[in-house]
Design a binder for these strands. Structure first.
Lengths: 210, 210
DNA sequence: CTGTTATGGTACCGATCGGTTCCATCAAAG
DNA sequence: CTTTGATGGAACCGATCGGTACCATAACAG
């Protein structure tokens, strides 16, 4: 029989705590920037515990990235929903959420995209049929974000919501990258928001020029 | 006296060849994805030669990134110039060049941004007063790209060329990232081009609506 | 109580890392 | 010819890597 729920020996609770702590450490130091030994000592667990729960460092990374992707996706969707039903307001809310994220103290870009970039060495599918896990997670991550943005474009009545959604995706992604790597553009998300709204208006309103 | 120019023992020629080969290897495998030993054997040189020319792996990386940044910047500027003097045509040419780059066989995103992401562990300035070299090179790289795009926006007569230039920068960067990490969007640069031209037109033409 | 289970700590493994040193070679300068 | 300097090859260094095995402890089940 399993031990009592919530006890300090509850494996599920331990796993969740490790996942949470490892997410922050990997984000701050990079996937290859921290070894398993230091990782465990920082988290206050033993290596045996880590390997019992996740099998390998790769397994831990994959679990961290999947959980992070779901959390971020949910966070952005909720930010859009909170803005109401007007597509324009929802789009603006997405970029406002982006701006506040970029302004957070430890901001270092998108953890999922960073991980995929750091692991680009494992390019193709390996012998186990597994592609590089970080790159797969990143692709699905962008796919979900594209779906959210395309929904907004569709609700707004754009002629080509798929195209407009992809343009929004590039603005969101580009703003995050620029905010991370170009200190001269601290308000990237604000400018991206202006551009996105202009594109939405151009795709929605009829063209008045001859 | 130095040996005859062009001889196989000419240090400058050796250095240039190493730089060229290392650029391709680092781009394909990642900065940490290949060790110095494999790097040297692949390039057909000895470790002593590498360390005599570049001092350390970090020194080689820095030299590779700086050379790459200059080459890419020159390439994009020339693509814009070749389109003539019309700002709209030059802007379109930039995204056309981007599209052809994204379509190349070994495309793996921007080498400079990838390197900066892979080395985000060396966050602040170290004891030698040197910030993480890859991150500095990336910041300057984006700065030069921003200057090119802002010039186009200014030549087009935009009311706020700095803002429009930054929006172009986010579209260029976002398109490259999406093309790398989202297989579902193979024509990212084409959609980014459409968006950029729409933004340029909106910022240039007077607004006809009440 | 006893038995089970999850845990933290530690020592250890082979492999690989970045970097250093020595040496034979080979082309060009004199 | 001899001398000079750049090179490739290989051995070697200490450190760190991801991963495994073993063990004492502590909390819970019965």
């Amino acid at each position: 029989m399993p031990v009592t729920k919530g006890s300090p020996l509850d494996p599920a609770r331990t796993r969740a705590a490790v996942l949470h702590r490892a997410t922050a450490i990997f984000y701050a130091r990079g996937l290859d920037g921290v070894g398993v030994a230091e990782l465990c000592s920082t988290m206050g667990i033993s290596k045996e515990t880590l390997y019992r729960h996740f099998g390998s460092k790769e397994g831990l990374i994959e679990a961290v990235l999947k959980e992070r992707s779901e959390r971020v996706t949910r966070w952005l969707s909720e930010a859009a929903e909170a803005a109401g039903s007007d597509p324009r307001a929802r789009l603006a809310a997405v970029f406002d959420a982006l701006a506040s994220w970029h302004g957070e103290p430890g901001f270092r870009g998108c953890a999922i995209l960073n991980a995929a970039t750091q692991h680009h060495g494992a390019g193709g599918p390996d012998e186990a049929g597994q592609h590089g896990a970080p790159r797969e997670v990143a692709a699905r991550h962008l796919e979900r974000r594209l779906a959210l943005l395309t929904d907004i474009a569709r609700d707004a009545g754009a002629a080509q919501p798929e195209v407009l959604g992809r343009q929004f995706l590039m603005l969101v992604t580009g703003a995050t990258i620029v905010a991370d790597h170009h200190p001269g553009t601290p308000d990237a998300a604000r400018h991206a928001r202006t551009a996105a709204l202009a594109l939405l208006d151009a795709a929605t309103h009829p063209d008045h020029r001859p």
